[in-house]
Amino acid sequence: MKKLIEVDNLTKVYGKGDSKTVVLKDLSFDLDSGESLCVIGPSGSGKSTLLHILGGLDNPTSGKVSINGQLLNELNDKELSTFRNKTIGFVFQFFYLQDYLTAKENVILPAKIASGNPSGVEDRAMELLRMVGLGHRLDHYPNEMSGGEMQRVAIARALINTPRLLLADEPTGNLDKDNADKVIEILDEIHERGVSVILVTHDEKLGKKFDTSFHVEKGVLVNNHPANQAKLGVLSNPDIHRD
């Protein structure tokens, strides 16, 4: 089967000279279409950076990232924007909804960016909001919702253009347990529908719900972590230092 994601020797370095910071170091892995992956690591381990690069929001310093057979570094800004709009769905820790748009309008936003005023998008938005349990909050603004509700709106927004890959960066980081469970439940359901999901978290327990999980510390996969003894070929490099 064609790999959905192929990452080869991915390295990300910020700064130069004495202030250089290696966030990711020679990271390599791949993911099949329809599979889910959980990347677990403490704060500052580079897991969010990995997600940003996979989502085309950031560029690697070196290495290759291929999504659905397309090398991301070969795309220009417009192509990358289209990639983010149609192939990827992003869910952030802090929701990042537009305060001046209703729940329905927030969900429709990526679709409007894609094609102006597409027909049927409103129906789809309402369906997605119902799916995440917010069919009764279509015309409410973010400041009228709880954290859990806002995150569910964000998930619905991420799905409006039927992406192949959903990237979730600490989606439960700002939620209480009940809301966190609801969100994970929704992500699980999305995965069941065939969307590949990559979730980054510091919560060890979440990893068990995913097809694959691996740990990252200081920018590298921890080679000797029991959880990384997976069928995915992973590389490790013990020579990492965060300056």
Partner: peptide, 16 residues
Amino acid sequence: KKEIGIFRAVGATRND
């Protein structure tokens, strides 16, 4: 800026 980031994250181009 935050608003811009959200737009970019969901696929808006620089020209958008």
